[in-house]
Amino acid sequence: MPSELDTRLFDPGRINLLIGILLFLAFLIINMLRARAGHSFFIRPLAGLQALDEAIGRATEMGRPILYMPGLGDMSEVGTLASITIMTRVARKVAELGCDLEVPCYDPMVMAIMDGVARQAYREVGREHDYKVGSIYYVSAQQFAYVAAVTGMMLRDRPAANIYMGSFYAESLFLAETGNLTGAIQIAGCDKVTQLPFFVCACDYTLLGEELFAAGAYIGREPVQLATIAAQDWAKALAIAVMLIVLLLTAFGHPELRRILQVS
């Protein structure tokens, strides 16, 4: 970019992205209309989410707490938003069964929102007074201070279930391996590809990448939510088709079409 100030109102190098977003939006609207018209959508079972109820049940029977970790992402991370959706399900179930829930948070804003979500869940099942103030708390915004605090808590309190949902980084193996040592049932979901092998190694169930984002729709089973998964599948099919076409054309001597996949 030249040193002069940019006065363009549109970056033509991003036209393909704009078209992609508009297409995705169109897929979303079409599928939502289909859902409203009564079309039913299939969503394959996700073992990790099915296991949530069992884990909470087990914790209730054992009289031990459930540890829910929303990851190290802030509110701008989509993984954190997905984690909040899953927390709604966990909090409702915990409120129904009456076991203890501990949510150590890395980000104070995530803590405040998680607290609101949990209170609402307790309110919805009519157990507002059972909600323990301070069960969702801020620990530290320092990665390894957070690790030290949470692993220490795991070893002292021995939670029956550890649920890791959100964006995790280098702390993933510390947490999951310590949880494994304590014998807790462990369920993880992470959108950071690099950390997935660590969770797969140390946890009983792992939601891989996009499964974390599908969790909201899976849990709610609302037709409109399920329609968004269908839209995602359409987008994926389109992406595969475009990649195949570009690949074939490149192989047959027309590499110029590759440009449609380049973003500035």
Partner: peptide, 8 residues
């Protein structure tokens, strides 16, 4: 060995 699979 892993946790028992939950029922549907």
């Amino acid at each position: 060995p892993r946790a028992e699979k939950p029922q549907e």
